[in-house]
Computed example of a mutant assay.
Amino acid sequence: MDLMELLFITLGTAVIVCYGVRLLLFSRMLFPKICFPLSKYFFTSMGEWAVVTGASEGIGRAYAFELAEQGMNVVIMSRTKETLDQVAKEIGATTGQRVKVIVTDLMKDVFSEIEEQLRGLNIGVLVNNVGMLPSFIPCKFLECAELDQTITNVINCNVKTMAKMCKIILPGMDSRGKGVIVNISSGVASIPFPLYTLYAASKVFVERFSQGLQAEYKDKGIIIQAVAPFGVSTRMADYQKTDIVTLSPGDFVKSSLQYLRAGDKTYGSVCHIVLGWLLKSIPLKILYADSMLLGLQDYVKKRALEKGRNNQEPNISHSKSN
């Protein structure tokens, strides 16, 4: 056997092993309850309280309900008092857990007041869910309405709020040596995504920030994870009909929590894991073709017209969808 033949055999073996390991890792995602089990009292062992931002509807509301179902008291935060009070009433009646309501606009400098309201609580779980989609209709960066203000709003809502809430709550977790932080990203952040450029870029920050924090605090016993859903039937997704790809908020949250021990990033469900793999496998030249981008715009515009939506209406997410 000459040197070249040995080299090709070695390279071929390495490729087979590499793809075999990838297939094994992917197969684990199909069976989260078996591969990433959580004990019955996992969440209550983290602490007495869970804090959920953007909890008045959608994914945030679903997280609040599910964590209460797991035996945690919950702090729910959003801008709309009437809606929050109703959610609090429903959680209390359904689960018997205590609910603390904090009415606040997280795009403003309100974090010292929030920290004061959370003082003294044994917080075991933080869900950073609140987020903002600059425009319901996908558009090029320079076509965004009131672009200067939009840039500020997106950074404040999608980036600053998450970092500030971690700054408030992480020290307590660090001192106790346990806790869970879930930061909601988006499936569109899997690639540079034209027409959603600002939004997708802000969600890349969510993922890198979460992954860096997990590396820093993993040895402290704290789980920090970015969750990047695709379709979830919320206001931000225009309440699309649920199917195998578009999940209800409740179904998505139940699924995503099963992946808490699956790593520093998850798509939250089997179908969204497959979508993420497909999106990253398609050549960008195809995804960036004018026909693809125009088709996406036309599809969303058609849905907007059917429901009477304003093309430039920003979607400030007290719910988080995709």
Rank of each mutant, 00 (worst) to 15 (best):
Q312C: 09
M292C: 04
T234M: 07
R303Q: 12
T10M: 10
Q214P: 06
S256H: 01
H318K: 06
L133Y: 04
M292V: 10
I244D: 10
R208S: 11
G295P: 03
V51H: 04
K203E: 04
P32I: 00
G179N: 04
I34Y: 15
P314Q: 06
N122Q: 09
T266Q: 05
Q225K: 08
R309H: 08
K100H: 13
K140F: 09
A237S: 15
V21P: 00
N310T: 06
K241D: 09
S112R: 08
N122Y: 06
T234W: 12
A93R: 12
L213I: 09
N322K: 01
Y63W: 09
L7Q: 13
A55F: 07
N322Q: 07
D85G: 02
S202F: 10
L247C: 10
L38F: 12
V101K: 00
I223T: 14
T234P: 09
P314E: 02
R22Y: 14
M4E: 15
G131A: 13
K285L: 01
A50D: 03
K218Y: 11
L106W: 09
F8I: 12
N153K: 08
D174R: 07
A201S: 13
P171M: 02
E66P: 00
R176E: 11
H318M: 08
G92A: 09
I224S: 07
I282N: 10
R28I: 02
K307P: 02
E66N: 07
Q97G: 03
K254T: 10
T150K: 14
L213R: 12
T13F: 14
L7N: 06
P229A: 06
R235N: 13
K301W: 05
V180H: 09
S281V: 04
M46W: 05
E69H: 03
A64P: 00
N128P: 04
V127R: 02
N311H: 11
K280R: 15
A200H: 08
Q70Y: 10
M132G: 01
I9K: 15
K40F: 05
T13L: 13
S319L: 00
F193A: 13
Q97L: 09
G276L: 11
A93M: 03
V103A: 05
F193W: 14
L11R: 12
S27P: 00
S135C: 04
A55W: 06
K320A: 08
D105H: 12
G124K: 08
E66R: 12
T242L: 05
A228E: 14
I91V: 15
G120Q: 07
P229Y: 04
A93S: 11
D2N: 15
Y196F: 15
R79H: 08
V15I: 15
I273C: 10
G47F: 04
K301P: 00
S291P: 00
D298M: 02
A88Y: 06
Y199N: 04
L198G: 07
I191Y: 13
P314A: 07
K265D: 00
L142Q: 13
A88H: 01
I123E: 05
L3C: 04
N310D: 14
